[in-house]
């Protein structure tokens, strides 16, 4: 047996378990902020298993059913390119960072396909908002990545991680190799974009319960909804992992999980206390300050390399 096949089989499972755990703990923390006790941290596992065990009553056609599957498949493929800490990913080559940027989009697009078939205006509006939001945060995010590529002279995620590696031990902390310290402005931009990618407030227009009744999820139920929840968990893992790999990378495997969780918690802290933007305002926001910062980041990088 090839170890790669094992990796390919195990990676999604670990990622899903981690993602669901993050959501569960996140709910607990948000509950405390809201002066509640909240559900137990394993609630998300129970819910997901329950959803997957349910029968799906209604369907609106082939693509409607295919949507969540496409989304899930896209996320799983992306996962193969994401290094798990210093452990190398299954697939790694020059330019994979660009590929990942494309692959991350597959999931929402697949969803858009399915939701569009469902022809519920809430879902359609939600999907339209999702794509608009993607347009909004992708631009500064890609620019932030661009500065990283400029700085590290590589387009392979694994190599970006390697470039930050130092001597790691429990007693010795060598985090000063992180790109966060080398490229602080780009890191901030990327984190702001991460907020949008994760769909946390103030950028949760896609699901916005009070406006469009949970948007894309509105027509789905049972297994499909379960798949969407899993997809969401995967996304949380992929996006936090991508951020950690690029800006807080190089650490050993045991450091990787707390790091991704911390990134997630950081977005939760903002999520907990803010209302949401109108979608137009979100677009304006991303194409405002973060975009300018990203450009400044590139200039800064160019200055630093020289």
């Amino acid at each position: 047996m090839n170890i790669n096949i094992l990796y390919a089989a195990l990676a999604p499972i670990v990622a899903i378990l981690l993602g669901l755990l993050y959501i569960g703990i996140g709910r607990k923390i948000i509950a405390r902020l809201q002066r509640r006790y909240g559900p137990p941290f394993y609630q998300q596992y129970i819910d997901t298993i329950k959803l997957l065990a349910k029968k799906t009553v209604s369907s609106h056609g082939v693509f409607f059913s295919l949507g969540p599957i496409m989304g899930l498949a896209g996320s799983m493929v992306t996962l193969l390119f994401i290094p798990f800490g210093s452990a190398a990913p299954l697939l790694s080559f020059h330019g994979d960072i660009i590929l990942v940027m494309y692959l991350v989009v597959i999931a929402p697009l697949g969803m858009a396909l399915g939701v569009g078939e469902g022809s519920n205006p809430n879902g359609s509006i939600g999907m339209a908002r999702g794509l608009t939001l993607m347009l909004a945060y992708e631009v500064p995010f890609v620019l932030a990545l661009f500065s990283v590529v400029l700085y590290t002279h590589t387009t392979s995620i694994a190599q970006i991680v390697q470039s930050q590696a130092g001597e790691w031990s429990l007693l010795k902390f060598h985090g000063f190799n992180w790109l966060t310290f080398a490229l602080p402005i780009s890191a901030i931009v990327a984190d702001i974009c991460l907020q949008g990618m994760l769909g946390e407030k103030p950028f949760d227009q896609v699901i916005a319960p009070h406006e469009i009744a949970s948007g894309p999820m509105v027509e789905y139920g049972g297994k499909y909804l379960g798949m969407m929840v899993i997809n969401h968990a995967l996304h949380i893992y992929i996006e936090t992992a991508l951020f950690v790999d690029i800006f807080l990378g190089g650490g050993p495997v045991w450091f990787f999980i707390p790091a991704t969780f911390s990134v997630f918690i950081l977005s939760l802290i903002i999520n907990g206390v803010l209302p949401r933007f109108r979608i137009g305002q979100a677009l304006k926001f991303y194409w405002g300050v973060p975009l300018i910062l990203a450009v400044i980041g590139i200039i800064y990088t160019m200055v630093v390399i020289k």
Binding site: R32, L33, R35, R36, Y37, I269, V273, L274
Partner: peptide, 18 residues
């Protein structure tokens, strides 16, 4: 200012665990 809300993180919640 909104971040001030996080001071309730470790305060006793006002719900009851029935």
């Amino acid at each position: 200012k909104p971040l001030s809300g996080w001071k309730f993180l470790f305060k006793k919640p006002h719900t009851i665990r029935y």
